[in-house]
Design a protein around this nucleic acid. Sequence first.
RNA 1: GCGUCCGUAGCUUAGUGGAUAGAGCGCUGGCCUCCGGAGCCAGAGGUCGGGGGUUCGAAUCCCUCCGGACGCGCCA
Length: 564
Amino acid sequence: MKEIKGVIAAEVAKVSGLDESVVIGMLEYPPNADMGDLALPCFKLAKSLRKSPAQIAEELAASLAKLNEIEEAAPSGGFLNIRLAKGAFAEHVVTKSINDVHGLFSSERGKGRTAVVDYSAPNIAKPFGVGHLRSTIIGQSIVRMMREDGFHVEGLNHLGDWGTQFGKNIAAYMRWGDEEKVRANPIRELFKLYVRFHEEAEKDPALEDEGRYWFKQLEEGNEEAIRLWKWFIEESLKAFKETYQLLGVEFDHYLGESFYTDKMDAVVNELREKGLLVEDDGAEVVDLSEYGMPPCLILKSDGTSIYPTRDLASAEYRHRVLGADTLVYVVGAEQKLHFQQVFKVLELMGRDYAKNCTHVAFGLMKFNGERLSTRRGHVVYLEDVLTKAIEEAAKIIEDKNPNLANKQEVARSVGVGAVIFNDLKTYRIHEVDFRYEDVLNFDGETGPYVQYTHARACSVLRKAETRETAWPAGYVPNEIEWGLIVQLSQADETLERAVDEYDPSVMARFILQVCHAFNRFYHNNPILQSDEPTRSARLALTDATRKVLAKALYLIGLDAPEEM
RNA sequence: GCGUCCGUAGCUUAGUGGAUAGAGCGCUGGCCUCCGGAGCCAGAGGUCGGGGGUUCGAAUCCCUCCGGACGCGCCA
């Protein structure tokens, strides 16, 4: 669609004297399909051209009508409504979908650039709850979409593997821990010990000192402390990786907070040399009052570092070692101020990549309207949620398609897809209230629905018994076929907007639009029983839809089973 | 107190300067001798939180009030 908009805009630019890119931005889709395929509101042009909008629309209509790509251009109350030449456009879109679906989506805008995307970031020895789901799948989708757009992307998992909590973990394990239990169920067992530590510490405050003592031991290299800490990480990571595998999520780097312990001095020294550090209440901070922000804490009053320091060191590492010119952080909205501060400090340090740092914030996840609180032990394990969804999918498969070959694998794809899609279909800033009744409902605008649509297209093509499909030259689509083609043609604009806004929900909504259009087409137009050339055209359109859906589903992290 | 974000149908939401505010769930009623009914079609359901303003045009931009969430140094 970008291409055809360019052609139209060039012509409008020539006649009106406006900038071509401005005209492209003004082109919109009419609210009603019978008005046309594209529309240009001419009201804004009235002032500069000193003519009435209606007159401008009329004049533009006359010159646009001459273009081969346009069937009709009609002025209507200050709007210019444009109908595309359907046959040629359809052939172009369908052919591209079938033979070069990557090209349909992408013009590789990110070519030559490198981005590091930070997502998921669970805490070692803590539950991986539904709350972590958002960062994980939004991040994974952003990684895939940016790669599609031509970026070189390094996906990074910034594990919470350092801090005073590990002193508590060690202390708790030494008092009450059982190696076998931890091995069998590392996260749940370690978390149980952690919760117990807090409970007992209420009665016996001396425990807190014990926790602090063990963290100090850890920092000073006590062998036993380090051995346990490494073991907790190893066991936790094993468990996390199982979940990632279930979700189909991957990382290029696992770099925890501890990785930066020896890389922070350089940052602190540079800040000091540049005169950015000031003493405040015993701590050292960067004053940001000039920019309307509270100071950014760099060293605590006891001289130790804190998370902004770590984030500065890690940004440097991502830029220098990993070669990133673009840094993306998929982290909850509650940390917005923190990232604004860190990015501002990077700017004050003279880092030019500071302007390419983005905090991709998302809203809190609630469970049945309640806030989840790890400390209070109010967690919902993602593992349990996924298991439930997979069981539900298996039940429905048993009911609707009992002869399916690889039921287990498909149930996994569908169950996990339901959970992922339920989350990604909503604008990421909104809070999400996680409810089983919604997640386990497979009707309507859901993961199973879009996967089903893809499987259905595959089924038609299987029955057609043709390997190659192609749009018959000169075939002009009917209204319903056209509706689907117009949807497919918007793949390029969709990817660009989704990447620019770092928002997978843009892609999810595109998928729903394509699915609605395809199912409408499917119900109203016989494919296999049609005469030529209609049969070929409809098969090609089905093939095009299948290819577009498979790609788009991949971009938001869903599998696209051919049967389900 | 200051700052940021959110408020659209019973519920979940799309639309963020253009034409009659679109969907899904739930509810009511149709559609399988036909390519997969996890589907399709139709219906009921809306003071776009309230009020002011800017504009040819406002759900969208500005101001203000109300409701909710989240931040505002020694956790991350």
